[in-house]
Amino acid sequence: MNLIDATFLQSAQSIVDSPAPNIAEVAFLGRSNVGKSSLLNSLTNKKGLAKSSSTPGKTQLINYFDIKFKTNSEEMPYLFARFVDLPGFGYAKVAKSLKAAWNKNLTGYLQDRPNLQIFVHLIDSRHPELEIDKNVDEFLKDIKRGDQIIVNAFTKTDKLNSSELNKLKRDYPNGIFISNLKKRGIIDLQNKITGHLFGN
């Protein structure tokens, strides 16, 4: 199964002004500057699909993208899903009132979106043990429904040497190890997503 098309659908501040929950969604979340936009662009093979901000934490909206997959089945040649680019967390230069509203909207989406199937939690491979990422993992495990999965995707693995990468793989045997630069792990992540959404 191949991802053959991705188009921007809309931005929203919360689930209230989000598109109708009529198709399975995959949420991408991570600290600001973890490489989320680069990963989405690599995954969809569209260079400018997800825009990265020069100021970490500046993107405050939930961005929705319609995704089309090509299958090997004549009966059902195409399957569809939606990728959701969530605002980065761990930002500093944001007013407290905005940060509170932002967190509330983000939490509301993660907890209450009925068609959300996969949480892709992006973690910087150079800093896998940060408290903020541990807290996010605990939160996701706490709210996760039986039909949902959490995928830990470790970004920027090209910045590790081989022994560091091997240790990371030992410590996180279920992780997916990404390098946008070397196109490493992109197919693994796509297969994980399609496997859960559509079966193998």
Rank of each mutant, 00 (worst) to 15 (best):
N166H: 14
L61P: 04
N161A: 11
L43Q: 14
N22S: 01
F80K: 01
T107W: 01
V136M: 14
N22Q: 00
P56T: 10
A24I: 00
D5V: 02
L160S: 11
N41E: 09
E131M: 09
S52P: 10
D112N: 05
G146C: 01
P19C: 05
D137I: 10
L189K: 15
L130M: 06
I67Y: 00
I118Q: 11
E138T: 15
A6Q: 09
T157P: 13
L98V: 15
D188P: 12
Q190R: 13
F69V: 05
K46M: 14
T157M: 14
I67L: 03
K47A: 11
E138R: 10
S37Q: 02
S53T: 08
N191W: 03
I193F: 07
V84C: 02
K182E: 15
S42N: 14
T194H: 03
I15V: 02
L140R: 04
L98T: 12
I4Q: 07
Y64D: 00
I150Q: 09
D147N: 12
R170P: 04
Q13V: 02
I178N: 11
T194V: 12
F119V: 07
F80E: 00
T7N: 06
Q190M: 11
R184Y: 15
L197H: 01
V84A: 01
T157I: 13
G30E: 05
T107Q: 14
A50L: 11
V16C: 00
A153E: 11
H121N: 13
K167Y: 06
P77T: 09
L9W: 01
F65G: 03
Y64R: 05
K183F: 11
F8C: 01
Q10S: 06
R184M: 15
F89R: 09
D124C: 09
K192S: 15
Q111G: 04
N115A: 04
E25F: 01
E131G: 04
L160K: 13
I186M: 08
R145A: 07
K104D: 02
T157C: 15
P128R: 12
R113S: 00
K134D: 05
K96D: 06
